[in-house]
Design a protein around this nucleic acid. Structure first.
Lengths: 150, 150
DNA sequence: CTCCTTTGGTCAAGTGCCTTTACTTTATGT
DNA sequence: ACATAAAGTAAAGGCACTTGACCAAAGGAG
């Protein structure tokens, strides 16, 4: 039985993240929920940090929900809030050391998984996989937000 | 900036499902939520149908939650319940005509998207993509359930 | 400079979807 | 035959999100 590509994409992503979450929990990062991962992903690519509103837009949730996510992550030491340089209403959310450590752990595990895939299908095919997915994602519209799937 | 493969998997899947949901809504299937899709996917591969408990196990939710999903889908005409052939406690859930029509619509749209990918990266690479993902999914453990991601 | 509108964030209440707990009915196995 | 397990139901609770209303700072137009 040959599966459809979208189903395979979902299953592949799921196997990866199942393993990552297990690994994270074993390393003490057991107080993060899936949605937090998307916050990390976003913040780790914005050295200046982001406002709660920006986060909400990116995640596709209301600003109230975004603020709540930040509250949780701040209470657990994953992010910090610092005053906005020019806007006194706003605050910039940035990753704290513990947040960076968590991101590093995820990336490390991703690389391990990728290495196994190299053993499985070969380095050339893994490179092709990444390149093709990259083209597909960039081709399909403007900015694809990395946010909770479905 | 070169993205990590897991992030690309998630983004690719998201672009596909965003388009599918838009398309479904336009065709009148506007009363289905993401979780329902996984029910359809599961039932469409089981000609004898499934019990609520089996569904719950597959989706990774309690049987109560599974029953609720089935209740919703039955009220909207997507699935039917018929008596279990041998077990009078149980009932088999099967796709109703409207459910099959919805599944067919999704698959049709998936094929359209895949055709666009062929234009984008070539038929050979699309075949490779499917084959590689298939190997990765089957290699990584026993049964990977297709269920809500993260 | 004032006024009006917009924007970042907060507060409170409500909702959707799930879980936990408890139960009934039917099946199963020794 | 009787004890235990399994399918489903019922009810209550919870978590993460939304909606709606609000405040204070920012920004633009006159």
């Amino acid at each position: 039985m040959t599966a459809e590509i979208p189903a395979l994409l979902a299953m592949a992503f799921r196997t990866v993240m199942d393993e990552v979450h297990e690994s994270l929990a074993a390393e003490g990062f057991d107080d993060v929920r899936p949605a937090h991962g998307f916050v990390f992903q976003y913040l780790s690519h914005r050295q200046a940090g982001a406002t709660a509103v920006e986060l909400g837009v990116h995640l596709g949730v209301t600003k109230q929900a975004a603020v709540q996510l930040v509250d949780e992550l701040e209470a657990r030491g994953y992010v910090e809030r610092r005053p906005h340089p020019t806007d006194r209403r706003s605050r910039m959310v940035v990753l704290a050391p513990r947040g960076w450590a968590c991101v590093a752990s995820v990336v490390r595990r991703w690389n391990e998984i990728e290495a196994r895939w190299v053993d499985l299908i070969g380095a050339d095919q893994v490179d092709h996989l990444r390149a093709d997915l990259q083209r597909i994602v960039t081709a399909s519209g403007q900015a694809v937000a990395l946010r909770p799937v479905w």
